[in-house]
Design a protein around this nucleic acid. Structure first.
Lengths: 88, 88
DNA sequence: TATATATTTAGATAGTTGTCTAAATATTTA
DNA sequence: TAAATATTTAGACAACTATCTAAATATATA
């Protein structure tokens, strides 16, 4: 994954809101969806993009898929932004 | 400007490369363009997006428009990423 | 095993975006 | 003031993306 594709994953209001929700607690796809006015397939599409960008992880729990933030990726992204000016 | 629109501005490889070039030194649109294989209008389009996102500033110098990074926006973005997990 | 629940995959479509050419604007120089 | 240089604006178009419906997959329960 390139840096700009990570930014692309962050560059959508729905995905941004998903990340904000997952900050509070891990949630199933269905629980995440209850906060939006889009269909399950649309939500799944966004979750797939976030997962592909390593911004979230998922695990199965019975019938549900539980999503959670991938902390390390955010830490790396913080570092990238901080170091942006340090290297010419 | 919203956070996700700032990310959208960062989410393109050409714009990412423009920012990397401007890290080294301020440059005119023409000098920036010499590093790419796209037409001047395409480049201008990207510069407009970066400017609109407050990621770069521009000033006129004779016939040239000189572009430079908008440091404060990057600092704010660093802070945003660092603080991402600190607030629920 | 059949049915219900949770989620994803597949395929279609409308809206967005990056690119181009042509034309316009701004500044400098002959 | 006319021509040259630097850049942007306008408009068209192809590629990409977010959305939808329909169907498929996986798990749990009657």
């Amino acid at each position: 994954m390139t840096l700009h594709s990570t930014f692309a994953a962050l560059a959508d209001p729905t995905r941004h809101k998903i990340l904000m929700l997952l900050k509070k607690k891990d949630m199933s796809a269905g629980e995440i969806g209850s906060h939006f006015d889009i269909t399950a397939p649309s939500l799944s599409h966004h979750l797939g993009i976030l997962k592909n960008a390593d911004l979230v992880k998922s695990r199965r729990n019975g019938q549900e898929i539980i999503y959670s933030l991938s902390i390390s990726t955010f830490e790396e992204l913080s570092d990238t932004m901080i170091n942006f000016f340090k290297t010419k």
